[in-house]
Write a protein that binds this DNA or RNA. Structure first.
Lengths: 210, 210
DNA sequence: AGACTTATGAAGTGATCATTCCATAAATCT
DNA sequence: AGATTTATGGAATGATCACTTCATAAGTCT
């Protein structure tokens, strides 16, 4: 701390938050460096590049930051102390709340980042796609765990069920972006959890023993 | 037909198809007029503007064309001669096939068109959003019809069920864009239809009397 | 105080953006 | 044939793109 040289005149963290907001709202390609610099505190072009490297490098940092902060909504999926059904429900509900928070852009940056990429930025688009793939794998792992524990019937198509949760989460992002009210999206989550119950052994709901 | 003046040297229809492909693949903002003109048959800039007006006007025409051609996957939803359950399943399955067709861009132009818009093109983005809203309404109407006919239990949350189908369809678009194999997406549809059955009266599946 | 380090403001880079102009080409109409 | 109409190729428009250069400002270090 207290490094040598002239101190920067803006707060780097809040500048990152402003940048995240823009990328989240508009996507990578539709967001210009001028917009970014302005929103991040009326930075000069020189300050922007000195502090963040380039638009692409900034986006990569933002993506990491997004995962670290807002991606935590899906953390329950990896929490093996939670009963799998509760893990899935908590993840979906937390994500819906995040995606419809009044002070943040609607939808999920990672989900909505699936489109709007030209060939020129294919590498960066792939980076976001990998994040989606990891989320997908988390849902599947959680379902697998449920089967292992006996909470889901191994005879049913559990692979499809895992993918189904991912599908719903992604779809909710577009609906959140379309400004559907939070309550409606929460009802979709409730309906989705009914589906889990219909996959439970003996056709009965696995108790949420959390 | 056979109007006066020099005839154009390219086929307008196939030029439109090439433009649709680009917009579908990259989105509106990430697609440049140079890319369009090149893909549409190495048109000169002058020819492009003479024939299609502007990038925005072209996109509006493409959107209409997309709905007329590929949007027909959802036509079963409005076909009241079909049992509602079959209508939904046919629509979902036809859309998955369309979204994973080997000779077309993956995913749905309308669904993936939810992101990548800067403030400057808000009007155009709203146009695509309206299309999504119409599709949403079609699913709901189909579910309402099922309730009216007695195929779904009116006591259950049928509004959420209608929205659920829309959610799944939108989510499938992102997964198709992520190149998930068609078979997996079809399994998601199968799982989704199980959900319908769990909403049926007496907890039993409504027969597909089609 | 003076060397050193980092940040800033202003101006400018070439490239590309969507779009237009204009002379000419290629068809139909009288 | 000549007038009219539409399309084309090529060059050019100003705006904006991501990014750089550079002199100067504002700190810490010895």
């Amino acid at each position: 701390m207290a490094r040598t040289g002239r101190p920067r005149s803006f707060d780097r963290e809040s500048a990152l938050d402003a940048a995240m907001r823009l990328f989240w709202l508009q996507g990578y390609e539709a967001t210009t460096v001028s917009q970014l610099a302005a929103a991040m505190g009326k930075l000069s072009s020189a300050s922007f590049y000195a502090a963040f490297g380039s638009k692409e490098i900034l986006f990569r940092e933002i993506l990491e930051r997004y995962e670290a902060i807002h991606g935590q909504a899906l953390a329950p999926l990896s929490d093996t102390t939670l009963p799998p059904r509760e893990a899935v429900e908590r993840a979906l509900r937390a994500s819906v709340r995040m995606q419809t928070a009044p002070d943040l852009p609607t939808g999920c940056l990672v989900a909505l980042g699936a489109s709007g990429w030209s060939e020129h930025n294919a590498a960066l688009a792939a980076c976001v796609a990998e994040t989606r793939a990891r989320n997908r794998a988390s849902f599947s792992a959680c379902v697998d765990r449920a089967v292992a524990v006996g909470d889901l019937d191994p005879e049913s198509n559990t692979a499809a069920l895992g993918l189904m949760f991912d599908t719903v989460l992604l779809g909710l992002s577009i609906e959140a972006r379309d400004r559907l009210p939070r309550a409606q999206l929460e009802e979709v989550v409730a309906v989705t959890m009914r589906l889990w119950d219909s996959f439970a052994p003996q056709g009965r709901a696995a108790a949420t023993r959390g």
